[in-house]
């Protein structure tokens, strides 16, 4: 396409610019809806948040400039440190989804397996289920007295506890659900990744005498690294933004709240419950900076371990 345009242009310089202009115009027109959407619903709010983080708000929308005050408060706020720690914990724990979904994907990829699409749908269901419904169901499962989990534990003689209301287990209980909801999503991605590995590599390896384990670690895993990397970046971002499950699964007056808040929950607390929107914006900006930094590090490190075939 491009080449043809250039050759044509060489012959008649006058048309060249017009053609260029026309391509320009149509190109921008095509991306306009997306760009506009991103601009209005993502970019503009980001810029606004940065601006608001330097302001203090009254409850109903009047704001005044306070410079770096919010950031100074943030540095001294012990809650921020605690929430950040919890957030990192969630993000790190969330990465467990990668080995688990690789295992599930490998199983579903087994040659001759029947009902593959049925299993795939089954694993994918949590992804398309509303978080509110997921949270409610798991609240019942985790219930200390009537929950299915404690009932099953009692069958093997273990006394369970109030998993999501007990401050020491609450966050972990939610993290399990977090991994569970994303399992199907990443399983599908890894299945695609597995199917993208050329079959002749395995044949060649088999001829050279490599067993199944060796094949997995020498062929499958290295060639899956781009997918692992992509999943890692995504899952860390989801983890850093954890809010809905926690918000919906903890009871309103739960003793678990104080020590188990994530940074987005703290943001919600401050900005919407207490009405300190400027301070909330500062928290959001810090989260954005941290997310950017972590993602940048991930991209830097990938050169060392990601193999593109």
């Amino acid at each position: 396409m491009e080449r043809a345009a250039v050759e044509g242009a060489a012959a008649r310089p006058a048309t060249r610019t017009r053609l260029r202009d026309r391509e320009w115009f149509w190109g921008y027109l095509m991306i306009a809806p997306l760009t506009l959407g991103l601009g209005v619903f993502y970019l503009w709010p980001v810029l606004q948040s940065v601006y608001y983080s330097f302001t203090e708000w009254t409850l109903f929308g009047d704001s005044s400039w306070v410079g770096l005050d919010n950031y100074a408060t943030l540095l001294r706020d012990p809650e921020v440190g605690k929430a950040l720690w919890n957030t990192f914990l969630v993000a790190a724990f969330g990465l467990l989804v990668i080995p688990v979904s690789i295992a599930v994907a490998a199983l579903l990829n087994t040659r001759g397996l029947r009902l593959v699409s049925f299993y795939r749908t089954l694993y994918f269901l949590p992804v398309v289920t509303m978080p509110a419904a997921v949270a409610l169901i798991w609240r019942w499962l985790y219930n200390g007295e009537y929950g299915l989990i404690n009932y099953l534990l009692s069958l093997v003689g273990v006394t369970g506890r109030s998993w999501i209301s007990d401050p020491s287990t609450a966050l972990y209980a939610v993290m399990v659900v977090f991994v569970w909801t994303y399992l199907g999503y990443f399983t599908v991605i890894f299945m695609a990744g597995l199917q993208g590995i050329p079959g002749h590599l395995y044949e060649a390896a088999a001829i050279d005498g490599a067993g199944r384990f060796r094949q997995f670690f020498r062929i499958t895993l290295p060639l899956l690294t781009p997918t692992v990397f992509f999943s890692g970046v995504l899952m860390v971002m989801y983890g850093l933004q954890m809010f809905d499950l926690l918000y919906l699964m903890f009871g309103k007056n739960s003793p678990a709240w104080a020590d188990n808040k994530t940074i987005v929950l703290l943001f919600y607390n401050k900005a919407f419950e207490e009405g300190a929107k400027g301070y909330g914006a500062a928290i959001a900006v810090v989260l954005m900076a941290i997310t950017l930094a972590i993602t940048a590090v991930q991209f830097r490190l990938q050169r060392r371990w990601v193999h593109y075939a």
């Binding site: 609240r139 985790y142 219930n143 200390g144 007295e145 009537y146 929950g147 506890r161 109030s162 999501i164 209301s165 007990d166 903890f250 009871g251 007056n253 739960s254 003793p255 678990a256």
Partner: peptide, 9 residues
């Protein structure tokens, strides 16, 4: 009941 139980139910 404990607070944990009362938050569960």
């Amino acid at each position: 009941p404990t607070i944990q139980q009362l938050e569960d139910t």
